[in-house]
Each structure stands twice: as structure tokens, then as C-alpha cells.
Design a protein around this nucleic acid. Structure first.
Lengths: 194, 194
DNA sequence: CGCGACGTTGATTTGCCTCAACGATTGTGG
DNA sequence: CCACAATCGTTGAGGCAAATCAACGTCGCG
């Protein structure tokens, strides 16, 4: 459980009582791979903090192909933010890639938390600010960089994931087909090794 | 000035004194077109609320071509968030596309505002949440949609801007070259008009 | 008026996709 | 523990969307 408290402590300072209060508002669950946590069309009413394992969010394009929006390894949060914030049905799916232990924060408890510990409103503001900056940067990367450069960025961003997620999911995340990704990797080996 | 207060009122309720306090922490400036408000390598220490006119943020790719990240018309905020939040030199440029009146909120005053009016922390959290959701959606759009569909989305998102922004900037925003954008528009007219 | 930025159009190239076939690996029930 | 199917990764041939390069008309503005 200390991973979450450590993460919080990097941005705001909580008393022991407040820490306990945070923990009391969470529920801990364990999921095996392929468990579906959120589905297109459903209203998302909780967010997940990953303690161990890997989650992913994705949607389907008009050819029914999966498109990976994001991964979440230990220390990351995951939710269908659009649905969570708006209370409307979302378009994302969230599932488990590798056996995971997550802390679940329901929307109701999150609002309770804001009222009990105003500092947590600051914490989540900062969290979302950082996510927005990262998302903007990824947007620019997708417009400016080649598939190969995007792969390099991915490796830097998720160093622990390369070994543990099927490469077709990585291909989808960086925005290429599995076939092209495979060829890219092969070309990389023939040329300068990295 | 009421545009800003109206925007705030959509998310949190302020007393008359609090409204005045917000206004006192702002500075209002007017800029003519092509004024540079922020530059790559500089630390961004303020954010802008556009009252009238148009701003844009952009950066340069490795071929020295401009890449437009975002536009801001009346009612929108604009800043180099990475630099603003981190206090480090940013990579974005911000300039004025059409003569603009903006309310300027310095980083120092923003933090003061959080302390004086905690509700404003909630306001900015919600603002950033919405921006993050929009950014995620744009990311997915860029991966899944054709240039033409992205153009349609742009028109829906910035209905007032199509007439007032040089089309090479729109092309850059949706991620195509000006040449291709021009051909796309021409093809659109020949086929079904929109 | 003349210059420079903008938009247009055409010819050519290219990065990535699509489709298809084929091993390798995984996992699952008998 | 094996046989089978299913999923995954690889490789090749061909195609398409969009980039690049280049030339030209047009307009706003000093």
C-alpha cells in the first residue's frame, strides 16, 4: 500500500490521520489477466491505482480494430476520465494485461475525499496537470516523429513494459500496424543495433 | 470581463467579494497580431484567458517547420503548461493570430488565488480535467481518422476560427501539409459539397 | 508599384497499410 | 502428457494516403 502513499507524498504532505483516511476510502482488488474493468457504453464510476501488474485502455476504430490509448503499470492511475467526470457512457475499454493488484477509488469516495482532505484536491489537480502535459507532448510526438522515433519514446516512458506486453499492443499504442512494427524491429537489427 | 466570470460560474459559485478578488489578481492586456507571448527556451510564468481575438501555441519540428499544437479563441485559456507547472524552460511558442484582449494570470497570483479562494483550486482542476479528456480524444482521432474527418472535427471544435485563421495553420493543427490540405478542400468541392 | 506570404496545382516519392501465407508459441481439454 | 486450436509474430507483394519538390497565380501591404 505504501506505493500510493509515496506517490501522494511527492506532491502534498498528509498527517498520519489523513493517510489513514485516504486508505479507508479505498478498496483493494486483484484481477487476473484479460479481466474487463470498463466497457464502451458503460458509465465509469471508479478509478484504479495500479499497485502491481499492468492495465490498458483502448477503443475500437471503424474497422473493429483495437486502438490502445494507454498503459498503466505500478504507480499509474487508470480510468475512463471522460465518463468518470461527465457521468455519461464512455467510449473506452479497460482491461488487465498482466495479473494486477489495484486500489479502487469510487467517484463518491473521491468527492468525499475532497471534502475531508482539501489537500487531496490539490494532489489530483497536480496529477491531472502532469497527465495533460504528457498527453500534449505525445500529441506533438505523433505529429512530428516517425514510427521508429515514437517507439524509442515509448521505451523511455514505459521501461518495464516492453518485456511484458504483446508487441501488437505496443504497435497499436504508437500508432502502427503489428506487421509494420515487426518489420521495423527487423530493420533495426540489420542496421545499427539499439 | 464578464466572459471570465461567466466561465468560472459554470463550475463553481463565487461570492461578489471572491469575484472581485479574482479580478484583482488579473492584469488585462491587448496585443496586436504576430506578437510573441512565449518562446522556446523561456520559462513561462503566466497563463492567458482570451477575451477576444485568437492565440496559438506551436513548436518547430526537426525540419524547422512550425507545428500548431492549439488555438485559443474567446473563452479559452492558453499557456505553456509544461513550463508553467515545472518552472523549467518550455518548448512551446505562443503568439497572437488576431488582435486580442487577454486576461493575464501570473503563476504567483494563481497560487495566491488558490490560498485565498480554495474553490478556485477546484475550478482549475475541472478545467484541466476537461482539457485532458479533450486531448485524449484528439489523440485517438489522430490515430483513427483520415485527414478529412479530422478537418470536420476541427470545424466543430472551433466554429469561429475557420474564417479567421490562415489555412496553413489549420493544416498544421490537423497534421497535414498545406499542399495536401488545399487539395483536400478542392476534392471536397468537386464531390459532395459540405 | 513591387515584394513577400499565401494558396493552388501537378509530378513524383515514400512511409505505412492491406492482404495473404506461413512458423512459433501458448494454452487447453481429452 | 499430448493433440489441437488459437493467438502471436514474421515475411512478402502490392496499394494508397499523404509528403516532398517545384512552378505559378494572387493578394495584401509597405
Amino acid at each position: 500500500m505504501s506505493l500510493l502513499l509515496d506517490t501522494i507524498a511527492r506532491h502534498v504532505v498528509l498527517t498520519a490521520e489523513e493517510q489513514q483516511c485516504v486508505l479507508d476510502l479505498l478498496e483493494t482488488r486483484r484481477y487476473k489477466a484479460k479481466t474487463q474493468l470498463q466497457q464502451t457504453g458503460m458509465v465509469c464510476s471508479e478509478s484504479y491505482f495500479v499497485n502491481s501488474g499492468i492495465l490498458r485502455s483502448f477503443t475500437y476504430d471503424d474497422h473493429a480494430h483495437e486502438r490502445v490509448l494507454n498503459f498503466a503499470g505500478p504507480g499509474w492511475w487508470m480510468a475512463d476520465l471522460y465518463s468518470l467526470y461527465s457521468g455519461l457512457p464512455g467510449i473506452l475499454n479497460i482491461d488487465v494485461i498482466a495479473y494486477a493488484e489495484v486500489h479502487v477509488l469510487s467517484k463518491a469516495n473521491q468527492e468525499l475525499m475532497y471534502r475531508e482532505i482539501p489537500k487531496m484536491e490539490r494532489f489530483f489537480r497536480i496529477l491531472v496537470e502532469n497527465a495533460l502535459v504528457a498527453q500534449q507532448q505525445r500529441m506533438l510526438d505523433n505529429m512530428m516523429l516517425s514510427a521508429e522515433q515514437r517507439y524509442d519514446k515509448f521505451c523511455a516512458k514505459f521501461p518495464g513494459l516492453i518485456a511484458n506486453v504483446p508487441q501488437k499492443l505496443i504497435a497499436s499504442y504508437i500508432g502502427v500496424t503489428p506487421e509494420f512494427f515487426s518489420k521495423m524491429k527487423a530493420a533495426r537489427l540489420r542496421g545499427g543495433i539499439s
